[in-house]
């Protein structure tokens, strides 16, 4: 009895300590917390000082947090104080809207809430020795495709939807497009947990082609990695959302920052880092090739529908493909 009472007292004390630890966090008066997915980090290292040089940005301090898009979305849901949130894909933002942390109308502006675009491309070895140009080239015998695991990397979902949509674009039926995905996965020898790890794997010598964002391909080239990339004729437009958190204590400065990020000047900086600008004026001068068969996630039914149809862990098409490929190869 005595021991149990002591144990209970211990638990109680522990609980109180935990509760006390949860208080007291929050920003200063003119400090913005930017919570972002990891790839645009280098762009923000340039963009934030540029903002601080403008009239609206004078004296605004920043603290920044970078991580995978899903992790960052969860962190904000779990109480990470954020003023501006930018993520890799819309569903991660939608979760914040559902949690009441981002206003419903976040995507009502002319850019539909987006800050940058990109497209899915093929990263190949320098000189493209296997001459990979089209989606059909990926499933030729002996071609190894590097692609992160779509269940751990939100970004990998873009790649798969690009592959699927390209098949529909080429006149295939949805069944044939599913069959293509199955064949594609048979050519994937490794499924890293994130896009960055997949790139490491590819640069480390594994695989003939890697499915990736155009900005990652450009980034790899800027870092003088020995790679080329091919923009396929049919590919998906990747759109990265940004929003001001509804609980921001500094909403004015936060909005000013987002407005700045959409300005021609800021959008040019994004473009230098390989992102396609959403600002028309900046996009015009950036010289990104326009794939003739470009489509969007909306053309495939939108993220809510796509997530359910393809990425449900029980009934999703991709879950089914993983099962088929994994079990058949076996051993």
């Amino acid at each position: 009895m005595k021991v149990r009472a002591k144990f209970a007292a211990g638990l109680l004390a522990a609980g109180m300590l935990l509760a006390a630890g949860c208080g007291g966090s929050g920003g200063g008066s003119d400090k913005l917390t930017l919570v972002a997915y990891s790839t645009p980090r280098e762009a923000y290292e340039q963009l934030i000082p540029a903002f601080q040089k403008t009239e609206a940005g004078k004296g605004v301090g920043f603290s920044q947090s970078y991580g995978s898009s899903g992790d960052q979305s969860r962190a904000v849901q779990n109480g990470l104080a954020a003023d501006v949130v930018t993520l890799a894909l819309e569903p991660d933002m939608t979760k914040l809207v559902d949690a009441g942390l981002v206003a419903e109308g976040w995507n009502a502006d002319e850019h539909k809430g987006m800050i940058t675009n990109s497209v899915v491309v093929f990263i190949v070895r320098k000189g493209n020795p296997k001459n990979i140009r089209t989606w059909d080239d990926l499933i030729k015998p002996g071609v190894e495709v590097i692609e992160p695991n779509p269940f751990t990397s939100g970004g990998a979902k873009w790649n798969i939807m690009a592959a699927y949509g390209a098949q529909l674009q080429g006149g295939k039926t949805p069944e044939q497009a599913n069959a293509y995905l199955l064949e594609l996965f048979r050519h994937v020898p490794v499924q890293d947990k994130s896009a960055r790890e997949a790139l490491q794997t590819f640069i480390g010598g594994k695989g003939d082609v890697m499915l990736a964002y155009e900005n990652e391909a450009i980034n790899a080239q800027q870092k003088e990695q020995p790679v080329d990339y091919v923009v396929p004729d049919d590919t998906i437009l990747i759109e990265n959302p940004i929003a001001v958190a509804s609980k921001s204590k500094n909403a004015t400065a936060a909005s000013a920052f987002v407005d700045f990020l959409r300005s021609e000047e800021a959008q040019r900086m994004y473009a230098e880092r390989g992102y396609r600008p959403v600002n028309q004026a900046a996009a015009a001068g950036a010289g990104f090739p326009e794939p003739p068969g470009l489509f969007t996630i909306k053309d495939l039914g939108g993220w809510t529908d796509v997530n359910k149809r393809f990425f449900d862990k029980e009934a999703g098409i991709v879950a089914d493909i993983e099962r088929t490929v994994g079990v058949s190869v076996g051993s």
Binding site: N149, F151, T152, V188, P189, V190, Q191, D192, K193, E197, E322, R323, V325, G326, V327, V329, G330, S331
Partner: peptide, 11 residues
């Protein structure tokens, strides 16, 4: 393991 295994479901 997350690096070395390749994380291929079922395999």
């Amino acid at each position: 393991v997350v690096i070395l295994s390749g994380n291929i479901p079922y395999r």
